[in-house]
Computed example of a mutant assay.
Amino acid sequence: MDTDLTTWSLEQTSPADLRPAAVPDGDIRIERAAVPSPEFSRFLYASVGGDIHWTDRLGLTYAQWREVLERPGVETWVAYDRGTPAGYVELDPQPEGAVEIVYFGLLPAFRGRRIGGHLLSVGVERAWDLAERWPDREPTKRVWLHTCSWDGPTAMDNYLRRGFRIFKTETEPKAQPATPGPWPGA
C-alpha cells in the first residue's frame, strides 16, 4: 500500500546543543560493543526496527555487515537493563567532521521507560567525542540523523528534547513494507 513517507533530517552543530535526559531509575548501563559482531548487530537491528519498518539492512550478507561495522570510527553503543540488551545507537563518522547517528532505538519491551532519552544523550556525547577514540578522525563539528513518519511515535520528540534542529524535510509516496519481526525472518 502506498502512503506518504515524510523524512526529517536533524542536526546539532555544537556539543553545547545537547540537552541530556535524566538517567533512568534502575540498573541501566550503556556500553560500547567494541568487537564488531555482525550477529549481534543484526539482532539489535531486527529487534529494534522490526515493528517500525527497518528493512534496508536485512538483506546484507555476513561479509557486508562486517564491512559496515569494521569501518574506522563506526561505533555501536548498547543500553542494558539488568544485563539484557534494551536498545542501541550506531555512529557513522563521515567527511568534514560529521557524525551520523545511523540507527537508534529500543527493543519494544523497553520503550516507555525513559531509557531512550538517556541512550540518545550518551550516543550524542560519544558522537561529539568520537575523535578522542579514533585519533585519525578530525574533531566532530556536526552530529546529525534522520527520522521518518514510520518511526516510533516518540522518536521526533526525543530528538527535539535532546537539542536537535530540523534542517530538511522531504515527503514522498512510498509503499510501506511489511514489518519483518523480530520474529519472522529475524
Rank of each mutant, 00 (worst) to 15 (best):
P108F: 02
S121C: 06
E170P: 15
E90W: 01
S41A: 10
A22E: 11
D92Y: 09
D136T: 09
W150P: 00
G181I: 03
L58W: 00
Q176I: 01
P108R: 05
L69E: 03
V48N: 05
P108T: 03
G50N: 15
Q94H: 10
A22Y: 13
G117C: 06
S121V: 07
R142A: 07
L5R: 10
A109L: 05
L60Q: 03
F104Q: 00
G83A: 01
D81P: 08
P108Q: 07
G181D: 12
T169K: 03
L18M: 11
A79F: 08
I101M: 06
G117T: 03
S149K: 05
M156I: 06
G87Y: 03
A131T: 08
G181Q: 05
N158Q: 15
A186V: 13
W77S: 06
L107W: 01
T76V: 03
E125V: 07
A21T: 04
W8N: 09
G116R: 04
Y62F: 15
E11Q: 13
L106M: 09
G50S: 06
D136W: 04
V48T: 03
D2I: 14
E70R: 08
E125P: 07
D2Q: 11
A22L: 15
P173W: 05
P182T: 09
L69S: 02
T140C: 13
P139G: 02
R142Q: 05
R66W: 08
D25K: 12
A22V: 12
L60N: 11
Q64R: 08
F164M: 06
C148D: 13
S14L: 11
T140R: 09
P72V: 05
D17K: 04
E39P: 07
P85E: 01
G152A: 08
V48A: 12
L119F: 15
Y80Q: 04
I166K: 08
A175Q: 15
L69H: 13
T84A: 09
G116N: 02
E100K: 12
A46I: 10
I166D: 10
T3D: 15
D4Q: 14
T171Y: 02
G163H: 10
D25A: 12
N158D: 10
P182W: 06
L106C: 10
A86P: 10
A46E: 09
E172I: 05
L145I: 07
G26S: 04
T55Q: 02
S14I: 09
K168S: 11
I101E: 00
D56A: 09
A46Y: 15
I30V: 15
K141C: 12
T154V: 07
T179Q: 14
G117V: 00
P182L: 02
